[in-house]
């Protein structure tokens, strides 16, 4: 399988207790919800004591490469097969963490992420499709997600990044489920 296309097995966003904020699996390696939860738990506990706040960290276990990064009370993970190029996967992680940062206007914590869960889910949708990397540039990702804000009447193609982020900010101001 060496000559295959780089692929991502899952993208996880967990909180500081290892609970799900948003997850997306692209591989059949974990067929049931129970096996997914077990995987999340072991990834979380194995990485808990490490310091992944300034630079993305990496670990190898159970035949997977996991790259991860912690921001406040959020833990970002990206998993791939163990023969994958580590730097490609790290690019995906960086794109994910940074674009969430842009969309949440720097307020990267569990509470804001849950209040803007629609943005986080769209963000994952824009990064990887069926395991294949779609986009890793955080500004592009955030731009694509933010233009979908509910009242975005400007045609997408004509919006600049800064406008896009302004829409994201406005979106943030609304409490999601009041």
């Amino acid at each position: 399988m060496q000559e295959s296309c780089p692929s991502v097995k899952n993208i996880l966003l967990l909180d500081s207790e290892g609970k799900r904020v948003a997850v997306k699996y692209f591989s059949e390696d974990w067929p049931s919800n129970a096996s997914k939860l077990a995987y999340e738990k072991s990834v979380f506990t194995k990485t808990l004591k490490t310091n992944a706040r300034t630079e993305a960290e990496i670990t190898l276990f159970d035949g997977y490469i996991v790259v991860y990064k912690f921001v406040h009370d959020l833990h970002f993970f990206v998993t791939a097969g163990d023969d994958e190029n580590e730097l490609i996967i790290t690019n995906v992680l960086q794109g994910f963490a940074d674009s969430v940062g842009l969309l949440l206007r720097g307020d990267v914590e569990k509470r804001t992420a849950l209040e803007n869960l629609d943005l986080v889910l769209l963000c994952i949708d824009e990064i990887v499709d069926g395991g294949i990397i779609l986009e890793t540039d955080s500004h592009n990702i955030a731009g694509k997600v933010a233009t979908n804000a509910v009242d975005g009447s400007v045609p997408f193609s004509e919006q600049t990044i800064s406008q896009a982020l302004a829409t994201a900010r406005e979106h943030l101001a609304r409490s999601l489920l009041k």
Binding site: R20, A22, V23, K36, L117, D118, L121, R174, L176, L177
Partner: peptide, 21 residues
Amino acid sequence: DARQCCQVITKLLYLLNQGDT
């Protein structure tokens, strides 16, 4: 009401994401 619909979809997606079926 687009906004309200969006919120409901988010809730549905939240349920699915937490493992509800």
